[in-house]
């Protein structure tokens, strides 16, 4: 299984799904800040259930960490977008998908840094 390809795909799919679900959960007539906070929390809640669904196939931590970050960021963005007026659903879904890919790529490079020999030196205090 090539996780270099699968991880961004999981990120994209999850981001798109979270964006769509948050769009249907949140009311559009709230103020921006409460809607953004509610969006972030709803996104993380959806990410929790997606984690339970995906971790037996793709690994617990490798799914849990990116999905919760994607859920929080996507949820907040969709929450804000809802207060700005009528945004087409496909735009929010695409935004969620792109956020998912971006987070997966950032975590891939963050992980690469953690695996580097310098990080794993016995004298490294980190």
């Amino acid at each position: 299984m090539n996780f270099k390809i699968i991880d961004p795909l999981i990120g994209a799919g999850s981001g798109a799904a979270i964006a769509t679900l948050v769009y249907f959960i949140l009311p559009g007539d709230w103020n921006m800040i409460p809607c953004m906070i509610a969006g972030g929390l709803s996104g993380m809640g959806i990410a929790f259930f997606l984690t339970l669904l995906l971790m037996p196939f793709f690994g617990a931590f490798e799914v849990m960490i990116p999905l919760h970050i994607i859920g929080m960021i996507t949820g907040m963005m969709v929450g804000m977008a809802l207060t700005l007026g009528s945004t087409p659903t496909f735009c929010l879904t695409t935004l969620g998908g792109l956020t998912g890919i971006t987070v997966a790529i950032i975590i891939y490079f963050s992980n690469k840094k953690h695996l580097s020999p310098m990080r794993n030196s016995p004298t490294n205090p980190l």
């Binding site: 931590f61 963050s110 953690h114 980190l126």
Partner: peptide
């Protein structure tokens, strides 16, 4: 602790 090698981020 002789060696501490990360397997995923600094979690595993």
């Amino acid at each position: 602790v002789e060696k501490e090698q990360n397997a995923y981020l600094d979690i595993v």
